[in-house]
């Protein structure tokens, strides 16, 4: 796809407060370096993330979206991550069916102790999106009036 190696994708990530956001914080306190392409929106639970946010982010210009929550059984709110898992599995399959490469819609379980895993996830997501190139086809038309 995109042969342009300069392409730096822009990825919007939704992180649950209790596990993944804490895991990303831990990566920070551990000074683990990772690509700066991912920008984070903090929500209390991955269950809060409406799958239509994925569509919205892609439309607003993101090249990829990541949703990250607690591992199964660890959700601070008991089941929020289970609901998220169902919703995103369906949405991801559906977007793939429309031609949105699955590399652009990712989900991960990152616990508060997995700073190192957070880095791995970011690298995986960023490299995956680099492979498929910029997502310009769905971008919202800029209004100039």
């Amino acid at each position: 796809m995109a042969e342009n190696s300069d392409f730096e994708p822009n990825i919007v990530a939704f992180l649950c407060n209790w596990c993944s956001y804490a895991g990303a914080d831990l990566a920070g306190t551990s000074r683990i370096q990772y690509p700066s392409n991912v920008r984070v929106i903090r929500v209390m639970c991955s269950g809060r993330v409406n799958p239509l946010f994925v569509m919205n982010a892609l439309q607003e210009g993101a090249d990829g979206v990541l949703i990250s929550g607690c591992h199964p059984g660890d959700c601070h709110y008991m089941h929020g991550n289970y609901y998220a898992r169902r919703r995103f599995n369906l949405m991801r399959n559906f977007l793939e069916y429309l031609g949105v490469e699955p590399q652009r819609v990712r989900m991960s379980w990152v616990s508060a102790s997995e700073g190192a895993k957070w880095k791995e996830v970011i690298e995986e997501v960023v490299n995956g999106v680099k492979e498929v190139g910029p997502m310009d086809q769905f971008k919202r038309r800029q209004l100039n009036w």
Partner: peptide, 29 residues
Amino acid sequence: LYDYEPGTNAENPPLLSTFKVDDREDFIL
């Protein structure tokens, strides 16, 4: 994925308001 067919049993919980602990998650990093 969820062995669910809408509109067949009014007693079913809504698909996205329920889950199974062992729902597929091979797509999750």
